[in-house]
Design a binder for these strands. Structure first.
Lengths: 331, 331
DNA sequence: CTGTTAGCGCCTTCAC
DNA sequence: GTGAAGGCGCTAACAG
């Protein structure tokens, strides 16, 4: 691989001059500029990133650690964040914690070793020693979607309260009174916020306040299915179900089929937090609060870059939209 | 951040000794080993990756470029590849081409600048100049899922012919004769292989060879919907549909609803290449050939590491499994 | 505007 | 088994 020395030699200038041209410094003559650029092109020169990072004490690399890359929410978020980072001249390192603190720590180690300039973190649980170390080292950090206790970093996430309000309004329009709510773990701020917003808003929307209709899973399909079975086994018969995320909704629907049969289950309307495209194809179709994952990813990157540039960044709640797939609904 | 010099000073040894201990060289006394390790721990020392890369002329970083990270196939593949890479002491850099050659080139540039040790590539189309450059620089490369003309690199992908055979066997068991096949672009080797395998096998499985039943989209939902409409508008009335990937199946189902109504559409059985969990919840449920994306990712990483270690790597076709969700079916 | 040079942090000879 | 020193490729500081 050609080095900057090769480029300089071929252009007949000193390495310093070549470096200035290649990094776009204005202090170069038009003549040397054209010769250096030509030489670089001819040699297929690509700067050695590690060497540059070593010298400049920055890498232009951001780390994004998500809790599960397989979830559509995060894969969309990651995609948008990557685009935004690239547009701003940064490379985004994407890694996956697989909802496991040990793997998260391994990734944070790798990030630290790479000397990333900043971290976008979607945390799974409490603080870990590695995270402490990064915080202590004053690495710029922003949080995605979930808050984390005792960490003072800007948070970019969904407007959970607003989303729940949209779902409640829809339930009211559809005339539902007996609504089952399957929540997520209280330990996740998303789970807690959605749950709280639902409890706070249901009465005003004409929905039964019978707590037998409410249960919570773990934001995964199996746990949600168990929660739904518990609700049904209490003898209540909801006319609609609200799942607190897409996996939860999936599990709840499975449980209803299992306990009530496909026929009866398909007469219960379903609304979900987190939209996925196949909700249009289930029976019944699922109406949903749509997270704007790309907007969250972009806002997170922008906030992080502000932090890196020495500025301050403010937390932001990104608005949701609502997709009405009910019969006679708008979508 | 602590450097190796700090560690050496604190341990009261020379940097050379500290380096030897930290990189696990056997030529160290038990005494200096314990003192260096202690000092490193106390200082929270993490080696400076870029500096190490500069000196060693390798980065222990692999690049994975997928054509669309939002597809479940690739996000699962990426997840498994990342795990495998980490287990082998490598960091995996995940990037996304968004089915766009320009973005792919930008990523390849970033990879080249980072001096990755090897590339896992899921190509979208033909060779680009950047890719040529990397090939010319003898960067170890493996291909994922799609072949690419004129590039002599091992390919790790789905056994498309085997998967189609599983679907054909199922169609036969279900007694279907009039089967619509919605394929993908011939330009993708996956599209071509599935199409060819279907044409070659249908007669032996008692399926009509009427080509009016066959059309192709672009592996995306919209294109597939159009293809399905073309089939229906030819006046044929299939009793089953085979979609060549999950997006294709989605589009075909949408088109059938649109043209035939939900009622009639739900009486047409559907089988798909690419399984996704919500196929269990559509009406009718979709039976599917399941790609083993994690196995492909792992095999790709292993093959690439063999290449990096100077060995040879052989292409590999990973077997599919079949998920029967038909009434009376096994799943 | 350009050439020269030091040094970023690390590993790896080369002496001892 | 250990210390000293050079140099990987690059940028920035300093002369000119």
């Amino acid at each position: 691989m050609a080095t900057i020395k090769d480029v300089a030699a071929r252009a007949g200038v000193a390495v310093g001059t070549a470096s200035r041209v290649l990094s776009g410094s204005p202090q170069t003559s038009a003549d040397s500029r054209s010769r250096v650029l030509a030489a670089a092109r001819e040699l297929g020169y690509i700067a050695h990133g590690p060497a540059r990072s070593l010298r400049r004490a920055r890498t232009d690399v951001l780390g994004l650690l998500v809790s599960d890359i397989r979830s559509p929410f995060f894969s969309e978020l990651a995609h948008a964040a990557e685009q935004e980072a690239r547009a701003r001249g940064y490379t985004l390192l994407l890694a996956n914690a697989n909802e496991d603190a040990e793997q998260a720590d391994a990734v944070l180690d790798a990030f630290a070793s790479q000397r990333i300039d900043g971290l976008l973190l979607s945390p799974q649980g409490p603080r870990t020693p590695r995270l402490e170390a990064l915080l202590a080292a004053k690495l710029p950090i922003v949080l995605l979607n979930r808050a984390i206790e005792g960490v003072d970093a800007p948070l970019y996430g969904t407007d959970n309260a607003g989303g729940v309000a949209q779902a409640l309004a829809w339930l009211q329009r559809r005339g539902h009174r007996d609504v089952a709510f399957i929540g997520g773990p209280e330990g996740f701020s998303t789970g807690a916020e959605r749950h709280d917003a639902y409890l706070a808003g249901r009465e005003a929307h004409g929905i039964s306040t019978d707590d037998a209709l409410i249960d919570a899973g773990d934001f995964l399909a199996d746990g949600a299915a168990e929660a739904m079975l518990r609700v049904l086994d209490r003898g209540v018969r909801p006319t609609a179900v609200f799942g607190a995320n897409n996996q939860t909704t999936l599990g709840a629907m499975r449980a209803m089929r299992e306990r009530l049969g496909a026929e009866a289950a398909s007469r219960i309307e379903v609304v979900s937090f987190d939209d996925v495209e196949w909700f249009a194809f289930t029976s019944p179709p699922v109406s949903a609060v749509r997270n704007d994952a790309p907007a969250i990813g972009r806002a997170g990157v922008r906030g992080l870059l502000d932090l890196i540039d020495g500025g301050t960044a403010a937390s932001q709640r990104i608005a949701t939209s609502f997709v009405d797939r009910s019969e006679g609904g708008r979508a």
